[in-house]
Write a protein that binds this DNA or RNA. Structure first.
Lengths: 212, 212
DNA sequence: ATTTTAAAATGACCATTGGCCATTTTTAAT
DNA sequence: ATTAAAAATGGCCAATGGTCATTTTAAAAT
């Protein structure tokens, strides 16, 4: 009931309100077409206030990314089934990630932007550090499941869980990026549908992961 | 010998000089930290002149990308060996693309930026259109080789060349992006080396592509 | 040579925007 | 009612992409 606790709580609420506004505008207009002024207007604060809660535009976007990673982590975990094989669960979480990329456009774009970010490990900003760790947790889900698959025999035992988790994550993200950004062009120039691309991806992954 | 031809030639030279300058600054400072003024200074023209040769900064960067795609296409073609199996040639061009991503940092970043670009097919700018087509030619190399592999038996005949070419291109680009941008972090948080990641990628691709 | 015309280049100027900070407003403590 | 601290403000600055009226340069015409 202390006044300090209340102030702390209100501060978090204000921070969250700014994040809500930022997310809304970022998702509508994209990172580069979004001005801090328009976020401020949406949040009903002055621009200066934003900088009391976030160091800069970059960090604000990273805070949105963090939400995205947390949501993704949740969706992937929901996709897991205890009674399914580890291999099947890899397919399950891949499918969940595919759906995420289609349904959560704004968050997925934030992840793509993150994938292209090269940051200084010794000099991480607050939100960048948090989102990095959240991203690592997502990868950890993959690692754990590949490890399980080696044990339950549903995944080729020659495959190293750690390395292949990073390979799967990065290559699937790259694939989903193409699906998202180049679908129209591929359809137009090569008459290839999104469904066939997805099917082919999963076909190749099955062959790659399954025991020979 | 006409004066018109000479002027045309000189125009191309000036355009190329601007491109050289732009490339130099873009590669040193990155797309967003490069100002048109600094390019103009490097090219020894005024800023206004740049806009006589390129519609805007975006198009200028796309023109650099075009150079990158042309160089990549050349390197991939050089990596092909007539006496090798089609599968082996896929590995050869993949390795060449990997080297390209490591050696030609600036061009590879331009390609990554391109991968994230969503453009209106009905309203393509000049340089964007050219680079798009150059990118398609790179993919075509993959398509042709997978097709060959189905015929010479070095690649699983269940695999559709068109679809799997796009899958391979996008997933490998995504993988190389991770290698480029996250190598330090992966090493730091998971103690996984670039070499092991690359090895694992090729292991998975071999299993995926080879006949069962 | 001189004048006219066209092509090329210039750089001052504008609007937008990320970020800053001196000042004001609000809230809590005394 | 007064003081102190916290929060918010909005005017300001510097950087920058892009434009355009003017100037400069080169070619063509006389």
């Amino acid at each position: 009931m202390g006044v300090l606790e209340r102030k702390e709580r209100e501060k978090k609420q204000r921070r969250n309100a700014i994040l809500d506004a930022a997310e809304k505008i970022f998702f509508q207009q994209g990172l580069f077409n979004t001005s801090m002024d328009s976020i401020a207007k949406e949040a009903e604060f002055s621009k200066g206030t934003l900088y009391l809660y976030f160091k800069n535009k970059e960090e604000l976007y990273r805070a949105v990314l963090l939400r995205g990673f947390i949501l993704l982590e949740q969706k992937l975990k929901e996709a897991l089934h205890d009674d399914a094989s580890a291999y099947q669960n890899i397919i399950n979480i891949s499918t969940a990630y595919y759906k995420f990329s289609q349904d959560e456009d704004g968050y997925f774009n934030a992840i793509l932007s993150y994938q292209d970010d090269e940051f200084d490990i010794d000099n991480l900003e607050v939100e960048s550090g948090k989102s990095l760790k959240a991203g690592n947790r997502v990868i950890q889900i993959l690692i754990d499941n590949i490890e399980k698959g080696r044990q339950d025999g549903s995944i080729d035992s020659n495959i190293n869980p750690l390395e292949s988790a990073f390979v799967l994550w990065s290559q699937f993200t790259g694939f989903l990026q193409m699906l998202k950004k180049k679908r129209e062009i591929i359809d137009h120039y090569f008459s290839v549908s999104q469904e066939n691309l997805l099917e082919t991806y999963f076909l190749l992954v099955e062959k790659a992961l399954r025991p020979r």
